[in-house]
Design a protein around this nucleic acid. Structure first.
Lengths: 143, 143
DNA sequence: ATTTGTTGTTGCAAAACGCAAGAACCAAAT
DNA sequence: ATTTGGTTCTTGCGTTTTGCAACAACAAAT
């Protein structure tokens, strides 16, 4: 049995909250999965696998497992299809929404090749309102 | 000579602004360098190298080069010490501030081992005010 | 000339990633 | 019972990235 400090040290580089966050989702894929759930109504492995960025299946499994272990996502058998799993956000996962929105806004602002769609224009006009609205509609789906 | 589309494809996985952003700073180190500049008044290679997370020197050089190439940072000879370089944020780099603040807030909220310091408590109380205030004070230093 | 401070490089081992193929599992259809 | 189709997950293998340690390059100060 290891104490809390040992556990912490094995997992995190420092006690800086930014560093700790990046230890969890600081990679090129994790937040894209979160995006798919938050903004594209995707919920299953096969839907994530189909996204345009073409994540490899082994990487996807690994990231889903990490996000589940971190209690950002919850995995359940689909009510509609018993041979399928669906992933839902937890409150902790939903709280990533402001980060995702800010990243989207920055990316749209500085990439001519990333045309703002409806959501992007709304963000540019009133970011707080978009976060509030989305947060409200996602709230009803959290586990 | 390649056209813009080819250039874009070689660099980015898709035209999603979130994906494009992660293509630039989606790793465990880039935003820690930005944090050091924004919140800890660090400006030089040796100062970044000294941070508690202990980045390797080759990784640091690589990330600084990427951030400079992306026009997030600007590298100049130090006015005070001619054998030293200092890195400054550009407007594009400064615009990462809301992302950094949101990540810090999330990390502090969900890690018992990341006690909120003064800045963290301010963020919890009034996030927008902190961003506004910091943005204002950093604005005078951008290149 | 030597020392000191700062930035950057190199070699090598370990870890993570990307890709392709296919295995495991389950449910529904035949 | 067997097959089919859909979904999830694993494996092998080559590539890329990372981490680590030592050290090289350079300029300024002594």
């Amino acid at each position: 049995m290891q104490n809390a400090r040992t556990f912490f040290m094995e997992k995190f580089r420092s006690d800086c909250p930014i560093s700790c966050s990046l230890d969890v989702f600081g990679d090129k894929w994790s937040l894209l999965i979160i995006r798919d759930i938050m903004l594209r109504d995707k919920v299953s492995y096969s839907e994530f696998l189909g996204s345009e960025e073409k994540i490899a299946s082994n990487i996807l499994v690994n990231r889903l497992n990490v996000l589940e272990a971190e209690k950002i996502l919850v995995k359940e058998v689909s009510p509609a299809n018993k041979s399928k799993f669906v992933y839902s956000l937890t409150q902790k996962g939903l709280d990533l929404l402001p980060i995702v929105i800010e990243i989207m806004d920055w990316g749209a602002k500085y990439n001519a090749n990333c045309p703002r769609k409806e959501i992007g224009k709304k963000i540019k006009k009133d970011k707080a309102a978009v976060i509030k609205e989305l947060s409200r509609s996602l709230k009803s789906k959290i586990r």
